[in-house]
Structure formats: C-alpha cells, structure tokens
Amino acid sequence: MVNTRVELCGLPLDNPVIPASGTFGFGYEFAELYDINCLGTFSFKGTTLSPRYGNATPRIAESDSGMLNAVGLQNPGVEKVISEELPKLAQCFDKPVMANVSGFSVEEYVATSQALESCAQIGWLEINISCPNVHGGGMSFGTSATAAAEVTRAVKAVTRKPVIMKLSPNVTDIAAIAKACEDAGADGISLVNTFLGMKIDLKTKKPLLANKTGGLSGPAIKPLAVRMVYQVYEAVNIPIVGMGGITTAEDVLEFMLAGATAVEVGAANLISPYASKQIIDALPQVMERYGITSLEEIIGKGH
C-alpha cells in the first residue's frame, strides 16, 4: 500500500492532483464524466469582481507539444460565482475547492477575496497575479516583487483562508518574487502560470490570436516549470503547488521531487477530459515502480 496523501497549507488532500484554473471550469462539465471527488481538489475558473467576457476570438492556437491561450479571464464575476456556480458545484463535489482570484488592482483582489471569505466550500485562495492575457492588471502584479508583496499583504489582511500566490514565469528571478510573497505572509506559492508567446499565421501573415500574444502551456513548458519549482523551493519555506505541462503520474513525481507539495494539471484536461483522473489512478503503480511508499516523503528530495 502506498500513501498519496499530502497536506497543503493545513488542509489534507487525498492526493496531490489539482486540475488547474481555467481548464476545469467550475467542475460540473467534468462531473458529468466521472466522480470528481477523486481529485485532491481543483482550482476553479479565475474569478474577478465584475463579470468579464474576455478577449476576442481566436483565443486558442496550437503549438508543438502545447497550446497558446488568450481567453482573458472570462468569468461571471464573484457575485454569480457565489450565487450560481458554487451551489451547483456543491451537488457534485464534497471537498474544499481552491478559489482562483484575479484582478486589476489591489482593491479588486481584496474585494473579491472578501466576498469569497464566507464561502465554506472554499478551502484556499489562489491569487492569480500572473495572467498574461489581460492588460493593466494580472501579470503586472506578478512581475514585481514589491507589487506581489503588496497584493499578498492586502489579501492576507481580509481572509483567514490559506493564501497561495500564483506566480508568473515571465520574470528574471521567480525565486525573489516567491520570497517577497512569503515575507508578506503568503501561505503557499503556486507556479507556473503560462509563458507569454505568439503564433503568426502564414496565410494572413499576422498573429493568429486576436489578442496577438497568448500564454503557452502544455508539455512544451514542463522542463522550464520544473526548474522554476526547484529554484523557488530553495528560496522559500512555504508549500509549493507546481504546474506546467503535467500529463502523467511520472510528471507528478518529478514536480514533487523538485519541491512541490501538490501539483496542478492544466492543458492535459482539455485534451483528455479524464486526464486528471487517469493521473490519479496511475499514481500508486508508478510510485511502486520507483520504490516510493509515501508522496509526502519525496517533496523536495531532488535537492
């Protein structure tokens, strides 16, 4: 018998697998296909204070071993998330869920976090300071240690839920930003969001995405993400949620050895709706193959 349990910021997870925000909606599309209670938890669609339509289409482009997206934080706004999405989710998911909070100002991050504070279903706040597809917000908070710390402090002041800061890889020194978040009171760090990229359509000779740039995800970014998790693990003492191109149980072990306590699965859910479940199902066998009896024991063992 192997043990897949881990603890993330004081809350237990049956396994470390967490579908990533923006690839799993509010859960119920997937709950039609399988019992999503097999997940560690999942991070729901990036939520802002007001409803957002997002960017013009095309919002999606393919690349080798990955994809670019420029959805631009389409979401119904925090009020509807609380009044409509969370009650629907309650019918198919019994575990605490991770709320992904996005924003365009410190005040907005605070207001959205405050609004979610009374939702008992929510176990963690994942503060997205790393969306590359919106202008005047999002990633600009995640590319400066000072701004990242400011958001962390402001959100921590209004919530008792664990606060996990989701970082952008589009920086020169991600470890410094992670450290600034830890010093400002963050309970955890999640990384990486997508890498800023572009695809040019040879037929039109213009960028394919209406937004011109988009965030690259999928297996193409995995080694970059593993390296960044490894670097952040050396810089902070709070738990790390690692992500970037995870498609297999082997990938989960790799991220955990780099220093992740839990992992998020993103683009893989879009290619196979059963991807997260398949990774969870495969974990025990893959752990045995590598002589691992408890996942908790391998966190950071690559150092």
Partner: peptide, 17 residues
C-alpha cells in the same frame, strides 16, 4: 465554426456574445 481548445466547454476558448 471557431478555433477550440477542448471542444466540451471547459476552456472558454470559443466563446461568442
């Protein structure tokens, strides 16, 4: 017709108003 990420409603890649 629209460029799609997932095709089953998860990614919001093909939304229209």
């Amino acid at each position: 017709e629209e460029r799609m990420g997932c095709g089953f409603g998860a990614c919001m890649g093909c939304t229209c108003k």
